[in-house]
């Protein structure tokens, strides 16, 4: 049986939907999809200056998996710059999957269907919850 992918923790999703090169016809050259976890890996390593071990712990994956995600992120960005491609951010497979949230007080994971109003933990009612994305 195919192995299931582990949840990768995203502290905060990117605050943009994508980047577009100017002075080039980017519609012609297409786009790359930067996954949320790739954005997160790049942010932790190159913006927050964490080492891979720290960053991997934060994302809840092994150091090797972190390295792989990070490598993939860098290659995609490089490809976009060199080939004048647009960068679009994507959940990856996550648009099929419901988003998971984690409670930072009681550590349960949960989904938030539309009719559940208020962003609170369904168990301890804490508001200290954050998104976990799956890919």
């Amino acid at each position: 049986m195919p192995r299931r992918r582990r949840l990768r923790r995203i502290v905060s999703p990117p605050g943009f939907k994508g980047y577009r090169p100017y002075g080039a016809n980017s519609e012609m050259s297409g786009h790359i999809e930067l996954l949320y976890e790739e954005y997160e890996a790049l942010k932790l390593a190159d913006y927050s200056h964490m080492n891979h071990l720290e960053a991997s712990k934060l994302m809840g994956v092994s150091r090797a998996t972190f390295a792989r995600i990070y490598e993939s992120a860098r290659r995609k960005i490089a490809q976009a710059l060199v080939e004048s491609k647009e960068i679009k951010t994507a959940y990856g497979d996550a648009f099929l999957d419901k988003d998971w949230y984690v409670c930072n007080d009681c550590y349960v994971r949960f989904t938030l269907p539309h009719h559940h109003r208020g962003r609170r933990c369904p168990i301890c009612k804490s508001e200290r919850i954050e998104m976990v994305t799956q890919k």
Partner: peptide, 29 residues
């Protein structure tokens, strides 16, 4: 199961604690 529960807007909650009773969970809520 997850795909279907999503479709019907049923909230899923995952508790990974060992050795808790149903009553413990009820009291947590």
């Amino acid at each position: 199961a997850k795909d279907l529960l999503d479709k019907f807007n049923i909230q899923m909650v995952i508790i990974q604690d060992d050795d808790v009773t149903v009553d413990d969970v009820i009291r947590k809520i």
